[in-house]
Design a binder for these strands. Structure first.
Length: 433
RNA sequence: GCGGUAGUGGUGAAGUGGUUAACACACUGGUUUGUGGAUCCAGCAUGCGAGGGUUCGAUCCCCUUCUACCGCCCCA
């Protein structure tokens, strides 16, 4: 028995037809729906200059410090496979001067494609994974936050998902965040020694992350920690209020989670996540996450420009679709199967399948010189509606047998007629039933 | 990066330190010469993730390694 010479790289997957049909379904629905919201697709490179990601995500973020899939190319350029979609889109936005007056504001874009993070694969987590994401630039209106959130929910509902939880929070503007950060440090520092080792480190680098800790030792303190909501500037507070009012006006259910933090450092003001409450998938419960980022465009050298967006994890979304039993049924059925008997009929069989396909039917034939019985079995296994049989006899008569597999009825049809009138012929056969 | 569990044919799997590695599904062929189901018959792993070692002998014991799954961290 031959062993495979190669296996796929760790944390990658081969998507076979059963899966690709599901993925295509999700992608098609997303493209259609985002189109309704007037978002347009943008495709950026799968790899970028390392700094594109390190600058945007934040030097202390896990994504940059330990999950970057990076390397030096033959020109000694430091390259990284994109770990998320926003940075590349922002880079493209600036590089292509999409902030220019000739473009609509907000500039609304979406993307679909692979992302890469170098980490241990586990449930809902791959080294190469895929995201559907959207980004909108040039407006700080809360209405745009809400439109983006609503669009994500709309997509999930259109796909048939249920039992989703939408959590929102605000990180405030720069001033709010700095104030809160200090308050948090003041609050946690006296308890420093009692925190988990991880959180002690977080306290130094990024105290907000402590809020996100699942360690019971930390959660004791998180429960009574000061809330970001009490440190919001007037503007941030109003923004957040407006977001809530608009969500409510759209009848969208949401809850405020003041301890929610995002993994990338560039967020401010509104952030949100869409999670499943499904117990089985709790290791990968978050299927979408996003929010506002106001400083990013200028980090990339563009004008001060507001941005808002989200990313959806394809793998998680598809597995949730399957878990909830709402993944589309794959149709592998054939319309026609062409059975041919004897070497002489090979050419005719080829011409017949091609003719059938030209009418738009799904048609298959045998390529292995198998017996008529075996060919019929295959036709049956694929639920072929009709079987066209050509043997020596039919060939001599310039004809072929068309058998309706449901009724078992069979009729001899001139090839000339089959080539020109196949749909009429089978319609007529249907009428006779 | 750390921890846990596992790795037998196309699939699901049973199994033992010692002649031919169960069983089932799938697949292929046959069951009177060119027609689908069912039945019945036959075929289908010189090999038990890989590499070492122990042993007279290892799929079963030991070591290493790879991979998968799950958890931590973090996230989509």
């Amino acid at each position: 028995m031959a062993k495979p010479l190669f296996q796929r790289p760790k944390g990658t997957a081969d998507l076979l037809p059963d899966q690709t049909s599901q993925w295509q379904h999700v992608e098609n629905v997303a493209r259609l729906l985002f189109g309704d919201y007037n978002f347009k697709e943008v495709r950026t490179p799968i790899f970028e200059n390392f700094e594109v990601f390190s600058r945007s995500a934040g030097d202390t973020s896990d994504v940059v410090t330990k999950e970057m899939y990076d390397f030096h190319d033959k020109g000694d350029r430091h390259i990284a496979l994109r770990p998320e979609g926003t940075a590349g889109i922002v880079r493209a936005y600036v590089e292509n001067k999409l902030y220019g007056p000739e473009f609509d504001k907000p500039y609304k874009s979406f993307y679909i494609g692979p992302m890469f993070r170098y980490e241990r694969p586990q449930a809902g987590r791959m080294r190469q994974f895929h995201q559907i994401g959207v980004e909108a630039f040039g407006s700080s209106s809360p209405a745009l936050d809400v439109e983006v959130i609503a669009m994500a929910i709309d997509l999930f509902q259109t796909l048939g998902l249920k039992n989703l939880r939408v959590a929102i929070n605000t990180l405030g503007d720069k001033q709010s965040r700095d104030d809160y950060r200090q308050a948090l440090i003041d609050y946690l520092t006296p308890h420093r020694a009692e925190l988990s080792a991880d959180s002690q480190a977080r306290l130094e680098k990024n105290p907000l992350r402590v809020l996100d800790s699942k360690d019971p030792r930390d959660q004791v303190f998180v429960a009574d920690a000061p809330s970001i909501l009490d440190y919001l500037s007037e503007a941030s507070q109003q923004h957040f209020q407006k977001v809530q009012a608009l969500l409510t006006a759209l009848n969208l259910d949401f809850e405020i989670d003041p301890t929610m933090v995002r993994g990338l450092d560039y967020y401010n003001d509104t952030i949100f996540e869409v999670m499943t409450v499904d117990e089985q998938l709790k290791g990968a419960a978050t299927i979408a996450g996003g929010g506002r980022y106001s400083g990013l465009v200028s980090v990339f050298g563009g004008p001060e420009t507001a941005g808002v967006g989200f990313g959806i994890g394809m793998e998680r979304l598809v597995s949730l679709l399957n878990a909830q039993g709402v993944a589309p049924q794959v149709d592998n059925d054939l319309d026609f199967y062409v059975v041919n008997i004897g070497d002489e009929t090979d050419v005719a069989a080829m011409q017949i399948v091609q003719a059938i396909r030209s009418f738009g039917f799904v048609a298959e034939r045998d390529y292995l010189d198998r017996s008529a019985k075996a060919q019929f079995k295959t036709a049956d296994r694929h639920n072929a509606k009709y079987v066209v049989t050509v043997g020596e006899k039919e060939l001599a008569a310039h004809a072929a047998n068309i058998k309706n597999m449901a009724t078992g009825e069979q009729q001899l049809v001139k090839l000339a007629d089959l080539y020109t009138d196949l749909p009429t012929i089978i319609d007529a056969q249907g009428d006779e039933q």
